[in-house]
């Protein structure tokens, strides 16, 4: 059990758990915000697991979540948009979460991996995550 796995465990229990709570109760806006936060945290969890288990191929999972997670949120904002309120609770947490979480995970991993193609893939995943997070946090607030 190393620090990476411990961090992944903390994110699953302390991050995805509250996201489930937020998605299971409350208004439509709050639920979609919780779903968006969950996809962001899941991407970070996959990156941490890739490093913790020593299996760089798991970064592919994080890459797919970084593109499909925002797509899922956009499905909800598109089809449930008229039921969502203008300023859902928790929406202001989305942008800081992605702007802090993505570099905080990608940079130590790049340092641990060293320069090369693997680091480029990690940085690319981080960039996709931040771009997706920025667009979806605005889409969620518009309702």
């Amino acid at each position: 059990m190393n620090w990476w796995l411990a961090a992944a465990c903390a994110l699953v229990a302390g991050g995805l758990g509250p996201c489930l709570w937020g998605a299971a109760r409350g208004t439509a806006g709050r639920r979609v915000v919780a779903q968006n936060m969950a996809t962001l945290l899941l991407c970070l969890v996959f990156l941490l697991l890739a490093q913790g288990y020593g299996r760089p191929s798991y970064v592919d999972l994080a890459l797919v979540v970084a593109v499909l997670g925002p797509a899922g949120t956009l499905v909800f904002t598109r089809l449930l948009g008229d039921e969502m309120e203008a300023r859902p609770p928790g929406a202001r947490l989305l942008t800081p979460a992605v702007l802090v979480g993505a570099p905080a995970t990608v940079v130590p991993m790049c340092v641990a991996t060293g320069p090369g193609r693997a680091s480029v893939k990690l940085v690319f995943t981080g960039v996709l995550l931040i771009a997706g997070g920025a667009v979806t946090s605005r889409a969620v607030r518009r309702g």
Binding site: V12, A23, R31, A34, A38, F46, Y53, L61, V65
Partner: peptide, 27 residues
């Protein structure tokens, strides 16, 4: 929405049980 979260949790579960192909399919 809750089913979407269930899918994400299942993907995480499959990955920690070292089945990333199944996790990727679920995702």
């Amino acid at each position: 929405i809750v089913l979407s979260l269930l899918g994400l949790s299942l993907a995480a579960l499959f990955t920690v049980l070292q089945a990333p192909d199944v996790g990727l399919a679920q995702l």
